[in-house]
Amino acid sequence: MISQSIKDGIRDGTAIGLSAGVLGLMYSLAALEVGLRPLEIIFYCAIVYSAAVQFTAFGADLNSVAAALTLISGAAFVCTRNVLMSLDMARHGTGRPIEIIGMVGLVDAGWASARGYRRGPVWPYFWSAVSMVYLIWMSGSVIGALIPVPDHPLVDGAFRATPVVFFALMITLLWRQGIDKRPHLASMGLTVVGVLVLGLPPALAALIAASISALVYVFITPVEREG
């Protein structure tokens, strides 16, 4: 059973990881453009391991306490979904320290694939999947930092679409597990309203929209129909 879980994790982690690798490649190219050196890019990717946080840190400095606090609060804001995913993974927890330590590899893709896994023990699946995602993410980052990528409009178009397509696939993983689509669709709609109609900052609009959608859904859905 454990070996089956590991095999499944490696298979799914490779499929997801290849898209994460493209994301790592895209981050490296963007980071080169803002002046980071190849070794610095690889360092960020290796120890931060969060494209969304790394993108928010472009242009960050530590010249004052205010600048440092802005950096920390911005990163924490982006990381709010990590808190929720970590709590959700806790339902599989048995209290072993290795499960808690394993959370350092928790990313959207790992959570989305592991939360619906039923063919065997979850933790071997989770660890093997997130290990593959990390390995391929780092490979993409190193390639992007060290190997010149041809400057072509098609490449630019693909890179620009990468984060959106990647997150669309994370949503798909959840939908295929039978999770109700309505709160996700509502979150998308409310985010559009928040940004385009109300003029809210994009990240704030996304978090407010997600909170409203999830709260409304949880409180209007009868408990016996949930699950």
Binding site: I171, S187, M188, L207, S213, Y217
Partner: peptide, 19 residues
């Protein structure tokens, strides 16, 4: 709420990047 919110947050951030 903990189960639903991360997916909603992913959907929201995805939308932000598509705008």
């Amino acid at each position: 709420l903990i189960e639903i919110l991360p997916g909603c947050a992913i959907a929201g951030f995805m939308t932000v990047w598509a705008l």
